[in-house]
Amino acid sequence: MSGDLRRIHGYYSPNDLYNKIIDGLDKLGKDLANVTLDDLQPVDEFHIRGDTATRELIQLAGFQPDMHILDVGCGIGGSTRRLAHDTGCRVTGIDLSDEYIDTAERLTRLLNMQDKVQFQACSALELPFADNFFDGVWSLQMNMNVEDKQSWLAETCRVLKPGGRAVLYEVCGNRNTPLYFPVPWAQDDSMSFLLPPDQFRDAIESAGFGIEIWNNKTDLAQQAFASAKKPEGEPNLPALGVYLLVGEDIQTKAYNLHRNLDEERVSLIETLVIKPGFREDNIQ
C-alpha cells in the first residue's frame, strides 16, 4: 500500500467502531433485537444531506430488483443497505478500510440483511471483479480521496455491464482555492484531491462513460451546512454520529465545509452516467 493510501486507510480506521455504535444505540434506548435502518441513519449515512440524498439518488438510478449493484466506497454500508432495502436489488459494497468493512458486515447481520448485501475490503483502483460483472454502480462521495481518478473511473466502467448505469454523487473543487482544512474527508491537503466540475466531467467521459444527467447540487449542500458554526470549547457530541467514523473534531470539519461551500472552494455534483453498449432489458 502506498504512503497516500496508508494515510487515507488510517483516517478511516477508527478502533472498535462497531462496539462504539452499539454503545450509542444502547444510550439512545434502542432495542438491539429490533434495530432499523432509520436507527442507524445518524452514523451510517456519511455524505452531504444524508438519507435525503440517498433516497433522491435511488430514484435517479432506477435500479430494479433483479439487478446486482456495486457500491464503490461504501463506508459502513448505510446507503448500501438503504439501496437494497428500497429497490430489492442485491448490492456488493467495497471500501479501502478494513474497519469500515468489518463494521458494515456486523451491522448488516444485526439488521438481518446479509442475503441482499455483502461487503469486501479492497481498493477502488483494483477491483477484484470480472469485466462486465455488475448491472449498476453506486458511488457516494469517495472520489475526494482518490488522486488517480482516471484509474478509479476506468475500473468502475470495466466491471459495469454494457448499457449499465452508474450514479456518482461527489464533492468537487470550484473556482477558488485553497480549501480550509480539516474537512469531513481529510485532515489536510495530503488526503484531498478535488477536480473542478468541468475537469471531473472530462475524466468521466475519458473513462468511457456517457453522461445522461448532470446536476449541480451545491446550493442544497450550502443549505445543509448553513447553520454550521465555529466550535468553541469542548464538543457537545450526540450518542450516535459520524464523528465516530472520522473523529471528534467533526464540528470544525462541518464548519470548514460550510466555509468552503459558501466561498466557492468546493461544489457538489450528482450525475447519472451510462456505459455504452447493448442491453436486452432496454428493448421495449
Rank of each mutant, 00 (worst) to 15 (best):
S13A: 14
E155D: 07
Y243K: 11
A53L: 11
S123I: 01
F134Q: 05
N132V: 01
D31L: 08
L57I: 06
L272I: 08
G93C: 06
V91Y: 00
Q118R: 13
P178M: 12
N112Q: 13
R175A: 09
W185F: 13
R6F: 05
Y243C: 11
G62T: 03
Q59K: 05
S123A: 04
D86G: 01
L107W: 13
G10C: 08
K149H: 13
R201E: 14
G173H: 02
D4P: 04
L179C: 03
N174P: 01
R201Y: 09
E263P: 01
L153P: 02
A124Y: 00
L28W: 03
L57D: 00
V137R: 04
N19K: 07
E170L: 10
S227R: 08
Y255A: 05
L17M: 02
P14K: 07
S97G: 11
P184V: 13
D188E: 09
K230H: 06
D198W: 00
T252Q: 14
E105I: 09
D31E: 11
N34F: 06
H85M: 12
S151D: 07
L257S: 12
M1F: 09
L261W: 03
I204P: 04
E212V: 11
P162A: 00
Q120T: 01
V266E: 11
R158F: 02
M142P: 04
P184T: 10
L125I: 03
W138G: 04
I274Y: 15
Q120N: 03
T103Q: 05
V159E: 03
S192P: 01
I94D: 03
D44M: 12
I283E: 09
D95G: 10
L220C: 10
D23Y: 06
Y180G: 01
R49Q: 13
P162M: 00
W138H: 05
T80G: 10
Q120Y: 02
R82P: 10
G241Q: 01
N143F: 05
G10K: 08
G136R: 06
F133I: 08
G88R: 15
K20E: 10
A154K: 09
I21W: 10
P197S: 15
R175D: 03
G93S: 08
P178K: 11
A33D: 15
F209T: 00
V183H: 01
E205P: 00
K116Q: 14
D219W: 08
L195H: 15
T80P: 10
F63M: 00
C157N: 07
D26F: 07
D86P: 00
